[in-house]
Design a protein around this nucleic acid. Structure first.
Lengths: 230, 230
DNA sequence: TGCGATTTGTCCGTATGTATT
DNA sequence: TAATACATACGGACAAATCGC
């Protein structure tokens, strides 16, 4: 599962003993991106601190991080609320993602090996299996994102990978909202077959060209739940 | 100076009454990117809180933001320090920046008007004037970044603009370090003449092609102060 | 190995500023 | 205008982790 063999693996720390700030960040992030809290919902520090059982210190730090990645909007002295999604937000996210992922494929192209391509196929197989099973659509979202993470992880570009990790929660957020609105089982079964086979193939240009159309498809599907608002 | 005519200008708030967290963030950011604090310098919360005259609460929040944009490195329970720059960091920053700025030019290309192009020329003229004057090399860095901000601001892509604003401090950081190491007067006088004239011109492809070489030049110059470290 | 010393991480109480009613 | 609710900020205190001796 872990493909970074030669990356300077400094970031590794036991996942159990996270700081309170990190735990709060993760829990709030999961609650928001899963769609449990409706977009636009007003949140209060007191309420959050009480329900999470933590003090306001680390809670505020976690909230700041969530504001930074665009899951929460904050107006000083007024309050915070879960972000509402507009069609333009979605457009921007998909266009930037297309740009970043194209860059990632250019970088990782010469770094592909039989082992890493095997990893890619396994990620797709796991996604297909979950979609076929149909029991856990939320899991299929995670696996789709994990599939797309492949090219970033292989690129050996920490700044690019960080950029991807930054927008990943927003993507999951949109996917979850779409899934809840349409009560569908997430991504289509064979949506990524061409993606994977081109990633294995010899032509980078073909891959990049497919990326653009693949992303536009994803955008069109996801955007179908949003009204036009000026 | 302000080019955003139709952007949903919500972010506007008086610059005087910033929160303590924002003030601390700005001050620490300026101190770091200007090179006043040497990379690798260890910082303590107590020391910072004392010298800034603020409590640890908002200070910690500001530090978190600085960690996020890569100016400070933090190891839990160990401490924080000003980031040290490696050649790979610089490589990653320039390659990502090239990607983002190419995307920005593709977006803004059809949005160019006589007025906005005038704005671009003024930014370049201000840069050239400061370089010719030779009195304030630090100012020329800001003006070079302001020149490059043009395409992002014109793109009407808030997420892209935010990505640029995120890496802007790191760029200034590198520029300042290079300037201090070589005690030079910053960017060359005519370094951006081609950049601007191509941005005014008819060929987007020519602009994009120039961007790549322009960035590589900038990287080669800036990287000359860094040793290779594994 | 253990034991202080230092620093980060966390909690609480309180006061102030701001927005809303 | 007053009152309430809330975010913001401060200070003190303690716990937890790290480092040096």
């Amino acid at each position: 599962m872990n493909t970074d063999v030669e990356t300077s693996s400094i970031e590794l720390r036991p996942i159990d003993d996270l700081t309170v700030r990190e735990q709060v960040f993760n829990r709030l992030k999961d609650h928001i991106v899963s769609g449990e809290i409706s977009p636009g919902t007003r949140l209060t520090e007191q309420g959050l601190a009480a329900s999470l059982g933590v003090s306001r210190g680390p809670l505020r730090e976690a909230i700041r991080e969530l504001v930074d990645i665009g899951l929460i909007v904050s107006i000083p002295y007024k309050g915070i609320s879960v972000r509402s999604i507009t069609r333009k937000d979605l457009e921007e996210l998909y266009s930037l993602r297309t740009t970043l992922e194209s860059f990632a494929f250019r970088l990782c192209w010469e770094r592909r090996t039989p082992e890493t391509l095997d990893d890619l196929r396994r990620r797709n197989a796991a996604l297909v299996a979950t979609v076929d099973d149909g029991a856990d659509p939320a899991l299929s979202i995670d696996q789709e994102l994990h599939l797309h993470s492949w090219c970033y992880e292989l690129s050996d570009h920490s700044l690019l990978l960080k950029s991807w990790r930054r927008i990943e929660p927003s993507l999951k957020f949109y996917f979850s909202l779409h899934q809840l609105a349409h009560s569908r089982s997430g991504p289509l079964r064979q949506a990524h077959d061409v993606y994977v086979s081109l990633a294995e193939g010899p032509s980078l240009d073909a891959m990049l060209e497919h990326l653009a159309t693949h992303m536009r498809q994803g955008f069109d599907v996801t955007a179908s739940l949003l009204r036009e608002d000026a």
